[in-house]
Amino acid sequence: MDWAGTIVQGLLLGGFYALYGIGLSLIFGVMRLVNLAHGDLIVCAAYLSLVLIEVTGLPPLLTLAIVIPVMFGLGVLLQRGVLNRVLGSGPMPPLLITFGISIMIQNGLLLTFTADTQRLPAGSLETASVPIGGLATVGVLPLLNMAIAILAIIGLQQFMGRTDLGRAFRATSDDPTTAELMGIDSRQIYGLAMGASLALIAVAGILLGMRTTFGPSDGPARLIYAFEAVIIGGLGSLWGTFAGGLLLGVAQSIGAAINPGWFQLAGHILALLVLAIRPTGLFARTRDL
């Protein structure tokens, strides 16, 4: 087995999971909401890009400029129009609603686009790669994704730590009732958080769609990868989730190298091991968002 190559490929794949996971833990962190439609929304972003490419002829990367704001707006609408109404009535109603949205998206995509798998036509980018240190060649797309994941984390940290709105996010996460008493409209914060989450996963959804195929029923698997990235890395730390995503990718990649059928299994086993040995995750910080 080419260990170096396998691990590099795993890390790059993990960059996508990191973005999925950051999106998921962002909304869990701010409003303790588990979005079961998270994976389907990732797939949704890829289809949105596909439609744009077919209608406008734009190259896939440029569709990001449209899909990111659209997904952001969709997140705000979803939160303010639907999810905000059931917050505060226990964990069950939001779970049921996002589960329902997940099923609606899957069926909507199936009806509109059939069960055929799709791929975003990336042209030469699809296979473009650069050699790294003579060990392995790596694709330009996953590198781009990795760069975006890292920039997103740095950007989120700066935002959370240095801006009034970012502090309002953290205060709301700590204690929404007291935050409201300080003049913070928590529902607006929740809307923005969901918007930011969907904007992040739009990036991952489109970049991954240029590299591998996707279909209407791929959402749940991606939700699980997002969960596993968060479980491995630990809630409450963006870099932890990032590292969790990378480790998940490496585990899957090594599993697949040993036996192609072990791709998913290896990732699940790693996540279960972490749950059993260190339930808070490998890099969890005790006090933080």
């Binding site: 009034d164 502090r167 309002a168 953290r170 205060a171 996460s173 700590d174 204690d175 007291t178 935050a179 008493l181 300080m182 003049g183 913070i184 006090r287 933080d288 968002l289």
Partner: peptide, 24 residues
């Protein structure tokens, strides 16, 4: 409001807790 039990935001520093007041 100065709430019962003080309700300091645990993940915010002293300065950041004060700056939250600007949200009004």
């Amino acid at each position: 409001m100065v709430p019962e039990g003080r309700k300091i935001f645990p993940s915010l520093s002293v300065r950041e807790n004060l700056l939250i007041g600007r949200q009004s």
